[in-house]
């Protein structure tokens, strides 16, 4: 039997991981009792409940894989590059300034989509850097470091 990754299976595993992780992280906070809750009570209890839901959903997905549509192929390129473009912006904006950060974001972000040409990328960079600087730096006077120098 081949295991199809159904939506339910993915949801179950997400719940299991996130809920379990939260419960684990919160286990060092004082738990208390239901009447005198410590800071750990809510996150631990909810984490365990989410993990339990995850367990049920996962089990259901394995036992009856026809109950939910398959996830299909997950292509890593768009999700990784889109996230990476935002990360690149965050890393550059205070070091090299707004213009460089926006330019890098546009280039990395555009790689996530299809059919990128050098000319297209340059055009997008120029236009979006100009718009961003015009709106946020000149228009709204948000104190940004704009240029790398």
């Amino acid at each position: 039997m081949r295991l199809t990754v159904t939506r339910d299976l993915l949801a179950g595993l997400l719940f299991l991981g996130l809920g379990g992780g939260a419960a684990l992280m919160s286990s060092s906070y004082r738990f208390g009792t239901i009447l005198r809750m410590g800071p750990g009570f809510f996150p631990v209890t909810l984490g365990l409940m989410v993990a339990l839901i995850g367990l049920v959903v996962t089990a259901r997905a394995i036992v009856a894989p026809d109950g939910s549509p398959p996830v299909g192929t997950i292509r890593l390129r768009p999700v990784l590059l889109v996230s990476a473009s935002v990360v690149v912006f965050a890393l550059l904006v205070e070091r090299l300034g707004l213009a460089a950060a926006v330019a890098a974001l546009v280039v990395v972000g555009s790689l996530a989509g299809p059919g990128l040409t050098v000319r297209g990328a340059v055009a997008k960079v120029v236009v979006l850097v100009a718009i961003a600087v015009a709106i946020f730096v000149y228009g709204l006077a948000i104190p940004f470091k704009v240029w790398p120098w």
Binding site: A84, V86, V106, K124, L128, A132, I142
Partner: peptide
Amino acid sequence: HVLYPAILVFSSIGVYSVASSTLDVLVAA
């Protein structure tokens, strides 16, 4: 293919300008 980079640019700057925090932008990613 032009619209989505623009959305990325604006929302990254928008999130950053709430508290001038690069951490906020990383968390958004």
